[in-house]
Amino acid sequence: MCLAIPARIVEKTGGENAIVSLDGVKKEISLALVADAEVGDYVLVHVGYALNTISPEEAERTLSLMAEMGLAGEAAE
């Protein structure tokens, strides 16, 4: 129920709607909640609506923080 999936906006279809690509599958959703989302942006899709846009910079930052972790443990092995 609370699951939401990251999808890329491929086309704005007028009104508040857009076509997104979910792992290659195209689907029409509503952008009513993320007025400033643009084609190419990744959004979090939940019950047919984009809830928010995903920040590529923050995603990178989180991954590099993760990559720094556990190095001490690894060195000890």
Binding site: M66, M69, G70, G73, E74
Partner: peptide, 12 residues
């Protein structure tokens, strides 16, 4: 691989 590292960090 990242999961293993994070697990090591938690254990530590």
């Amino acid at each position: 691989a990242l999961a293993r590292r994070l697990a090591a960090q938690i254990a530590e």
